[in-house]
Amino acid sequence: MDDVDQKLISALRHDARASLSDLAIGLGVSRTTVRARIERLRASGDIVGFTVVLRGDTARDPVRGLMMLGIEGRGTDRIIRQLGGLSAVRAIHTTNGRWDVIVEIGTPTLEDLDRVLAQIRRFDGIANSETSLLLNTWKSGS
């Protein structure tokens, strides 16, 4: 994948409905080149599909945060199961480094987020945690 492919993918991420002509002008290449590159990227599996983001998708969780968890002992699998049972948990990631698990949380209000955080902190085996509110999302993958 070369620089033009990277720029094309970036442009498609910004607006997947952009016309071939608009993409060509933005990239400084021909319309035919854009079409051929999109077809090649799809055929190779680099582009696996296109999606739509609805207003409701962004309004679903007005309050979002990342909770980083340090887990003592060998309780990670149990804690992941417990986290998976919480309706406010959007994603659970295991990781390396200082934190063992990173949890994406979405709630309607700050008060709801506070309740979920308190509930998770009470799980047996949580050694420590740190939470960051997500203020804005510039790019989100599916």
Results as ranks from 00 to 15, higher is better:
Arg90Gly: 02
Leu113Trp: 14
Gly84Lys: 00
Ile105Arg: 07
Asp100Ser: 09
His93Glu: 13
Gln119Pro: 12
Asp112Arg: 06
Leu113Tyr: 15
Thr137Val: 10
Gly106Asp: 10
Arg81Pro: 06
Phe123Met: 07
Thr76Trp: 03
Ile71Met: 13
Asn136Gln: 08
Thr76His: 10
Ile92Glu: 13
Leu113Phe: 14
Leu69Glu: 11
Ala88Trp: 11
Leu113Ala: 08
Asn128Cys: 14
Trp99Ser: 11
Asn128Phe: 15
Ile92Cys: 05
Leu134Cys: 05
Arg115Gln: 01
Ala88Glu: 00
Leu134Gly: 13
Gly106Thr: 02
Thr131Lys: 00
Ala91Val: 07
Thr95Glu: 12
Arg121Gly: 02
Ser132Asp: 14
Leu117Ile: 13
Gly85Ile: 05
Thr137Gly: 09
Asp124Glu: 11
Leu113Lys: 01
Thr137Met: 11
Asn128Lys: 15
Asp114Ile: 13
Pro108Asp: 03
Ser87His: 00
Asp112His: 01
Asn96Met: 15
Glu72Trp: 15
Pro108Glu: 07
Met67Trp: 02
Arg74Met: 08
Leu133Ala: 06
Val103Ile: 07
Gly125His: 07
Thr95Pro: 13
Glu104Gln: 13
Gln119Asp: 14
Leu86Ile: 02
Thr109Ile: 02
Gly85Cys: 08
Pro108Tyr: 04
Ile79His: 06
Ile92Ser: 04
Leu83Cys: 00
Leu135Gly: 03
Ser129Ile: 09
Arg81Gln: 08
Ala88Ile: 02
Glu104Gly: 02
Glu111Asn: 01
Ile71Cys: 01
Thr107Met: 00
Arg121Met: 15
Asp114Ala: 15
Thr76Tyr: 02
Ala127Arg: 14
Leu117Met: 04
Asp112Gln: 08
Leu86Asp: 12
Ile102Ser: 07
Thr94Asp: 10
Ser129Lys: 05
Arg90Pro: 01
Ile102Asn: 09
Thr95Ser: 10
Gly73Gln: 00
Ile105Leu: 13
Ser132Gly: 02
Ser129Asn: 10
Leu135Cys: 01
Gly97His: 05
Ala88Lys: 00
Ile92Phe: 09
Leu117Trp: 12
Thr107Lys: 07
Gly70Cys: 07
Met68Gln: 05
Phe123Lys: 02
Thr107Phe: 03
His93Thr: 05
Ile71Asn: 06
Ala88Met: 03
Asp124Ser: 00
Asp124Trp: 14
Gln119Lys: 04
Asn136Glu: 14
Phe123Cys: 08
Arg81Met: 00
Leu83Ile: 06
Gly84Val: 00
Arg90Val: 08
Ala127Ile: 10
Ile102Lys: 10
Thr76Leu: 12
Asp100Leu: 09
Asp100Tyr: 10
Ser132Leu: 11
Gly85Glu: 15
Arg98Asn: 08
